[in-house]
Structures are given as structure tokens and as C-alpha cells.
């Protein structure tokens, strides 16, 4: 397992919600990226002082993660969207099997990937950096990867 941008773990994560889709179905409709990201963002924001604004904020990155998986996932098997939380954070995680020629990009967790001809990867990390959300990845056996973003559980956006 390789983890990028490791952050201190304040406590174990508990599962809040999960959604599993057939990857072929998911990849058949680009609009599903928007639908799923807004659905997850609404749940991420529900404990915030201003849920509508935080949902909009978090959906910006969640949507990009989902679009990235939309473009990178092999069109077979399943894709898992999960929401987990501990006392400080809500974690959005997406697990899928990427097509093999995308794999080296998982190691390039910075915007240099744009110069290497993979703008989607660089844009994803660039966005996370810009809006200061901790994004990280894990690689698993059987060619699966997990994208994870950690959002504040309560803090209001300014």
C-alpha cells in the first residue's frame, strides 16, 4: 500500500454511507459524476453550520475525484463510493480498478503530471492543493486503487 500526503489520524473512521455501482453502468453516463458528487457532498455537509455552502465547496473536489475515476476505471467490475467519519473529519473514498496505463500517474501526486501528458491527474492534485483539502491515494492488490479526500466535520467555510 502506498499512501500520499499522510495526515495525523485523530481516530478510527466509521462508515457513514456507501454506494456501489457497476462500473460499466457508471461509465455509460457522464452526468452520473455530477449526480453522485452532489449526493455525497450533501451528506458531507450535513453537520456544518451552512450545509448548502459547504456542500458546494466539497462537491468541487468530490466531483473531480469522481470524474477522474470515470475516466480511469476499467469498464468492468464495480466502483465503490464510501463516506466515513471520525470526530474531526469526513472522508470521501472511491475505490476502483484503473486501466493499467494510468497507473504510473498515481505516484505523481502533483501538477507535474500535466506536463507529462496527464492533465486530469495534475488538475486533481492541483485543485486539492488550492482549496486545501487533504487528498491521498492507496494502491491495493488486484490492481485496485482508492482515492480519498478528508473534509472538516464541522468547520464552516469562510
Amino acid at each position: 500500500m502506498i499512501e500520499r500526503q499522510v495526515s495525523p489520524e485523530p481516530g478510527a473512521f466509521e462508515q457513514m454511507a456507501s454506494l456501489t455501482l457497476d462500473t460499466a453502468l457508471f461509465r455509460s453516463e457522464f452526468h452520473l459524476c455530477d449526480r453522485v458528487s452532489e449526493y455525497l457532498a450533501d451528506i458531507v455537509a450535513q453537520s456544518h453550520e451552512d450545509p448548502a455552502r459547504y456542500a458546494n465547496f466539497s462537491s468541487q473536489l468530490i466531483n473531480e475525484m469522481i470524474e477522474f475515476s470515470f475516466r480511469s476505471a476499467v469498464p468492468t467490475g464495480q466502483i465503490d463510493f464510501r463516506l466515513l467519519k471520525n470526530e474531526e473529519r469526513v472522508r470521501v473514498s472511491i475505490e476502483f480498478a484503473p486501466v493499467s496505463d494510468h497507473q504510473p500517474d498515481w505516484l505523481a501526486n502533483d501538477t507535474s503530471a500535466i506536463a507529462n501528458g496527464h492533465p486530469a491527474v495534475g488538475d486533481l492534485w492541483g485543485l486539492a492543493d488550492a482549496i486545501r483539502v487533504n487528498l491521498h491515494t492507496e494502491e491495493h492488490k488486484e490492481n485496485h486503487v482508492t482515492l480519498m479526500a478528508d473534509f472538516a466535520l464541522l468547520e464552516a467555510v469562510r
Binding site: 455552502r53 465547496f57 468541487q60 473536489l61 488550492a130 482549496i131
Partner: peptide
């Protein structure tokens, strides 16, 4: 109102 927009365009 849109909390992500200024940080993103500041890049």
C-alpha cells in the same frame, strides 16, 4: 459565497 472559486483562480 462560492468558497472554492477564489483559491482556485488564484493559482
Amino acid at each position: 459565497v462560492i468558497a472554492w472559486s477564489a483559491p482556485l483562480f488564484e493559482t
